[in-house]
Amino acid sequence: MDLTLKIWRQASSKVKGQFVNYQVQNISAEASFLEMLDILNESLVAKGEEPVAFDHDCREGICGACSLYINGRPHGPDRGITTCQMHMRNFKHGETIIIEPWRAKPFPVIKDLMVDRSSFDEIIQAGGFVSVRTGGIPDANSIPIPRRNAELAMDAAACIGCGACVAACKNASAMLFVSAKVSQFALLPQGRIEAQERVQRMVAKMDELGFGNCTNTYACEAECPKEISVSNIARMNREFLSAKLISHKEF
């Protein structure tokens, strides 16, 4: 199939960007979206032009590196998958595809479609862990965990940190990302020990970084490639409220 691509080009974070139109021909329906961009890039390189920069790595939907806001949707038109897992059969011959980078103040554009998502790491560094050291740990089976809790924790832990929730949210809120980590630990006895402190620290960091507020629009859940539930956000709100009310210290 032949396609017109309308791609955001921006040389660096310091200069302004604009949309540039490209044509690609004879794209197989079996190709993945990123392979389609590879083809475009190889043709640009052959012509001596700068290829389009985009983040990608594992190409099997787990590393969370790929992004791309495609025709108004993070990770494109299909549900429950990342951009790298989307195949061109989701598009029609002759279609124009608009490809934009994630847009959010805490995700500044680095180049073209690449954005800086280190703010997510900063949130994790603020409290997204259990403070255990290596070694000196009791036997793994010494604390039984109800299967349902383990399953819910796993549902939340499936987050790949891609940032689609922020990209999809009309407020560029990171609540789904933060709540997924808060929930995972809140559901497990290992994480309960620091639960009050964790939720306060992580939320404070999230706010400080300039993410928007949650208005319960649920676009995040709809676009999350791992289909993480907004019930995690409610759980975080609960955790936060109780931490604020009874915690011995404010963070």
């Binding site: 309308k6 949309f19 806001y69 025709n71 108004g72 949707r73 608009i98 934009e100 847009r103 959010a104 103040k105 805490p106 999809a168 009309k170 407020n171 560029a172 809120s173 300039g210 993410f211 928007g212 507020n213 208005t215 319960n216 629009t217 649920y218 676009a219 859940e221 709809a222 676009e223």
Partner: peptide, 29 residues
């Protein structure tokens, strides 16, 4: 306040508007 913060969290808007909001009226609060 919340709205102002939300607007400032996305200084550059998308060309193609998102449409995946599940709670439609939340967009217009």
């Amino acid at each position: 306040i919340v709205q102002l913060q939300n607007w400032s969290a996305r200084p550059v808007r998308y060309m193609k508007k998102g449409y995946s909001e599940l709670s439609f009226f939340s967009k217009f609060m």
